[in-house]
Structure formats: C-alpha cells, structure tokens
Nucleic acid binder design. Structure first.
Lengths: 195, 195
DNA sequence: AAAGTTAGTGAATGTTTACTAACTATTCAA
DNA sequence: TTGAATAGTTAGTAAACATTCACTAACTTT
C-alpha cells in the first residue's frame, strides 16, 4: 500500500475538508477545488472516492501505530499510560480532521470496506493499550477489581467522549489541558490506593 | 409540540428505516415507501425532512425524560444508578433505531436545528444522572477522589461506547446482559472500598 | 347545495452526487 | 526526434436527492 506524493497531497486535502466541513463536505467537487484542479483529475490518482477514504484511514493507522510504538519505552505502566495519551492527544491536536474521520461514524455507512478499515484503525489503539494495562494490573498498580477488557472499555469510552466534546466545540478549547485532566481522573480511579 | 397520529406513524416509520439502513437510508423516498404512500404526501404532515427528524428527537427526549423521572424512587444512590441504566438500556433494546439517531452523530452535520435538538437530548440524561452521583458522593458511597463532572464524563463515555459497540455489531448481542455487566464494572470502580 | 378541508396522487423541479469519455499538454527515455 | 506514458482539461452522464406543482376524491361545515 505505497502512496505517491500526489496521492498524499490528495488525502491531506481530504483531511482539511473534513476538518472544515465534516463528512458531508467531503465530495469530489470540494476535493478538486481544494487541490486546485478539475474533478476528473482526482480519478488519475484514485479509482474511486472509497479508495481515497480507505487510503486516508490506512495512512492514519500506520502513523498512529508507529508513533505509539516509539513512544512507549518506560517500565512504569503509569508513566507509559500518560505518554500514550499525551502522544495521542497531541497527534489529534495537530491533525484535528482525523478526529472527524475516526470518531464520527458518519463514514461508517458509506461502504463495507470503509467500515472494516475504520474498525482496524480502532484496534490499533487497543493493541497498544492492552499490554500496558495488563502489566499495571500484574504489578498491582492498577485495580484488579474488574477485568482488563472492562478497564479498557471504560478508558476508551472516556477518551472517545473527550474527542467528541472537542469536536462539537469546533476544536475551540485546549485539548492538551483537558486531555491531561481526563488522564489524571482515570488514573486516580483505576489506581489501587497506596497506604 | 403536539403531534398528530399520522405524524407519529411517520416518525415511527423513520425509526424503522434508521434501524434497518442508518442515517443515509433515511430519505423521503424510503419514508414514503415505508408509509405506503407517495413522497409528496409526507409534505402534508411535515414541512421538511428536518422537521421530521427534530420531531423524532423531541419525542425521544420527552419519552426518556418521563421514563427516568418515574423510575428513580429509591434513597439508595447505588440502587438508583442501576435502575437508571437498566431502564435506559431496555428502552434502547425496544427501540434500537434511537441508538442510531442519538449516538451516530451522522445526523449532526445535517442542520443547526438538529444539532441543537440532539445536544438537548444528551443533556436529559445528564440531568438525571448528576443529582444521583452527587448524592452518592455526599453519602460517601461513591468516590470523592475526582469531581462529579469527571465521574459523569467517565460514566457517559463508557455507556456511549457500549451503545456504539452494540450498534456496529448490528444489535446482535444481548445488550441487557452486557449492559448490566458494564454497570457493575463502573460501580465497582467508582464505589469507595468498604472495610 | 355550496364551500371548505384533509390527505392523497403523479409528474416535474433544480441541485448535487460520483464518475466517464475524449481530448490536450508535459515529461522523459530510446 | 519521436512517441509513449503521465497528468491534466472540458463537457458531459445517470442517478439520487428534497421539494413543489396542479389536481382530485372523500369528508365536513355552513
């Protein structure tokens, strides 16, 4: 799944449109306008609109995956937990359009292929979070009162809602600040009480 | 905002379409087919598609509001918490299309009015949850380690994600069972440890 | 009996959508 | 220098969309 420079430009343009006008604004016409060429020129680089969206989601999945891989280095689960989320949050701050893409699920109805790509993308996050939580539980830092899966569900739900709120506020508030706050609340909740 | 019997039939039909084919399937054409009359007949009962969606959301908000008002009767916050969610969950089990409407946010792009109605609807839930959590915190049953707002954020996020998972699984798994399980996990997490 | 209302019809509106066919300009290797 | 691949153009397409049109049959009110 390599991508030409021009294809990359197009998925970047798609991102900008997504930020500005949401899923319903992401049309071939708007994409062509953003690229400053004609609509049919798009089809020199992608066979269909579906392909553009899938390419964008795959690129996003790869970015997130490699970023998270490089960033989790500590042996302290709590430290890794913080780093994982601040990395995620600053990524979305830099690329707010991806929030629209990933968390909107307005895309999900468009096609089966997009649907699957989107689910694959969501699993990337879980892949990195899971071992981290398990380690914390084994070390007795995180609570064992509920299962790892249940913990992850609660954490992911909380994060997703945070992103949702940021999005419907039109990315106006400081996501770094409120994100850190959110991470802190969750940690307080899931950490075992130390005496 | 009273509604004629015929208008009610139409928003019910809209609900069925939403369940079967999502937001993108909710067109006047499909609505007319479901009602077994012509497209133009829809406009005898509603001025626009937007009005139909808003009417549907308002009906939903009223239903949920009155249901929740009647169901929270105990003096035990934990009991009320359980009842609040099992009521919510069994309502959505009976009306799965509303899950699509409320939690999809695919609707949100359509118009400003729909957007506002949708946000109003989400506040209904918070309205009932808030006093309950505060009472639990005051009584020392729920943790005071984080604020009421932070607790509610985590709870709502967890619930929203549960509904999202149910939806993308095409309502196939038993939401009552997994919903109860989710409520139990959250309670375990937010309850102060008793000795 | 006349006048008005309600709830329907089929045909047509204008706009937007993703996509395509046919043509042209540019680049670059043989 | 040719000539083919590449990347763009203009000008279309059919289908889908919400909405509006003139009109009608069946009731109800005056």
């Amino acid at each position: 799944m390599e991508i030409t420079p021009r294809q990359f430009e197009i998925i970047e343009a798609a991102g900008r449109i997504l930020t500005a006008s949401g899923v319903s604004g992401l049309t071939i016409k708007n994409l062509a306008k953003e690229m400053q060429f004609s609509e049919s020129a798009i089809y020199r680089h992608f066979a269909s609109k579906e392909e553009i969206i899938v390419a964008m989601l795959n690129f996003l999945a790869d970015s997130i995956d490699s970023r998270l891989t490089n960033v989790i280095t500590s042996t302290d689960p709590e430290e890794n937990f913080k780093v994982l989320f601040s990395e995620q949050i600053s990524f979305f701050k830099k690329n707010p359009h991806f929030v629209v893409a990933v968390f909107s699920d307005g895309l999900m109805e468009e096609s089966q292929l997009i649907n699957e790509t989107l689910l694959k993308l969501m699993n990337v996050k879980t892949k990195h979070l899971m071992p981290l939580i398990m380690e914390g539980q084994q070390k007795g830092i995180f609570t064992n009162a509920i299962t790892t899966e249940e913990l992850i569900h609660i954490i992911m739900g909380t994060f997703k809602l945070q992103m949702f709120k940021w999005r419907i506020a039109n990315f106006q508030f400081d996501i770094i600040r409120s994100g850190d706050n959110m991470v802190q609340s969750i940690l307080t909740l899931i950490k075992t009480k130390q005496i």
